[in-house]
């Protein structure tokens, strides 16, 4: 993607949560949920964000949309920093960015019809009312593979995959330029996942919006993304073009992550787990490189100095001190 200016540019995004304890609810610690994340996303591009639970990928998604207030950092949408905007000033920007959540059961109001759910954004932004709104909603239903006569049904009358289609239709209703997908298929059955992934790809081809696609499933992310960023404990440790990343992972964590994915082929030899132990707590994360406590290749420098993202090839950046900051080659 060689755009003049990226659609979304996130710089040094930080989100800290205070941990309070005791009777007086004094702050006793800080959760470093997102700890200095920067990335850019071009128009019509998909950036995958992978990592394990607690790595901060969902917080990044919510902070980008200002559903969670960032502690610091800039979120530029089309060159405009939306991080400092007030709620009212932010409203027009909401039309350009939408979200699809993981749980298609909880993300639809059980007391509203599917048609009302999809049409609500149109009402809220005063775009269409009455028959015009119904027409637009019917059109959206068709775009996501639902029948317009299903508009009067309630969420519980739909299957999981269909509900996720309703969520996608709602996200599309305002004609957004960025859609954040927070684990959109991980609650779905395998055979339904493929339908939803294909739908997301088809819609993007037709309407040329960008996806920030968050998932823990590497295969799904790899399939849908153009570029992939790997997160660990609130930081991006590696970001690269998809093919480059999977062909030539440089960060020991990325390498371990890739090696851990069970391959659906009994002849593929099972490799012994590369890394031991669990992800450390994001309250007081390890010093230096946060991964050094589990990294089999850690050197002294990793324990004290935090590595920053550095170029390690074309369209490939890694935050690792090994090999003069270009990461480990396999």
């Amino acid at each position: 993607m060689t755009e003049q200016r990226p659609l979304l540019e996130v710089t040094d995004l930080v989100k800290h949560y205070a941990v309070r304890g005791g009777v007086l609810r004094r702050q006793v610690g800080t959760v470093h949920a997102v700890d200095g994340v920067s990335f850019a996303l071009g128009a019509g591009e998909t950036l995958g964000l992978v990592g394990e639970s607690g790595c901060g990928k969902s917080t990044v998604a919510r902070t980008v949309l200002r559903l969670v207030e960032p502690t610091s950092g800039a979120i530029k949408l089309d060159g405009e920093d939306i991080a400092p905007l007030s709620k009212t000033a932010l409203r027009p920007y909401r039309r350009s960015m939408q979200i699809v959540f993981q749980d298609p059961f909880a993300s639809l109001n059980p007391r509203m019809t599917a048609g009302d759910i999809v049409g609500e954004p149109l009402t809220v932004h005063g775009i269409a009312t009455g028959a015009k709104k119904q027409e637009r909603v019917a059109e959206l239903f068709q775009q996501v593979g639902l029948r317009p006569d299903q508009m009067k049904n309630f969420p519980h009358q739909f299957s999981g995959g269909q509900r996720q289609r309703i969520c996608i239709a709602r996200a599309l209703s305002l004609g957004p330029r960025l859609i954040v997908c927070d684990e959109p298929v991980s609650a779905l059955d395998v055979s339904i996942q493929a339908q939803v992934i294909n739908l997301l790809i088809d819609l993007q081809r037709k309407q040329n919006f960008s996806y920030l696609f968050i998932a823990h499933d590497l295969a799904v992310v790899a399939h849908i993304s153009h570029r992939v960023a790997v997160m660990y404990l609130g930081r991006i440790v590696e970001i690269a073009d998809k093919h480059e990343l999977f062909a030539n992972p440089r960060h020991p964590y990325t390498q371990a992550l890739l090696a851990s994915v069970p391959i659906a082929d009994p002849k593929a030899k099972r490799t012994a787990p590369l890394i031991d132990g669990d992800v450390p707590s994001p309250i007081n994360p390890p010093s230096g490189c946060a991964f050094h406590t589990r990294c089999p290749y850690a050197i002294d420098r990793c324990k004290t100095e935090r590595p920053m993202l550095q170029a390690a090839g074309t369209a490939h950046q890694v935050a690792c001190w090994l090999n003069d900051g270009t990461g480990r080659s396999e």
Binding site: L65, L67, L90, R94, F101, L108, V124, H125
Partner: peptide, 16 residues
């Protein structure tokens, strides 16, 4: 609930 979060993300007022 995510559906309340979704309502926020479309820019709905708190009252609504």
């Amino acid at each position: 609930q995510p559906f309340v979060e979704a309502a926020k993300s479309i820019g709905m007022s708190e009252m609504r």
